[in-house]
């Protein structure tokens, strides 16, 4: 069975992981409650999106 000849050095391991970094998610601000939220999503804090409250019951639609 194929087996590694050498232990992977700290340098090689680090170089392999050089492209594994995680980017910070870009955020926008809710115009209703000024809390940070993900762009193009319903605000998780106040439940509104583009002026409409999506936490309401839908009986009146």
């Amino acid at each position: 069975m194929a087996v590694p000849k050498r232990k992977t050095s700290r340098s090689r391991r680090g170089k392999r992981r050089a492209h594994d970094g995680i980017r910070v998610q870009s955020m926008s601000t809710c115009p209703q409650c000024t809390e940070p939220k993900l762009p193009h999503r319903v605000c998780p804090h106040c439940g509104t999106y583009r002026g409409k409250n999506f936490t309401d019951r839908e009986d009146d639609i």
């Binding site: 926008s28 115009p31 002026g51 409409k52």
Partner: peptide, 15 residues
């Protein structure tokens, strides 16, 4: 996501 019957119109985003 929500999927809903579009009976109303949403505000245009003004950022």
């Amino acid at each position: 996501c929500y999927i809903e019957m579009a009976t109303d119109t949403l505000e245009k985003p003004r950022g």
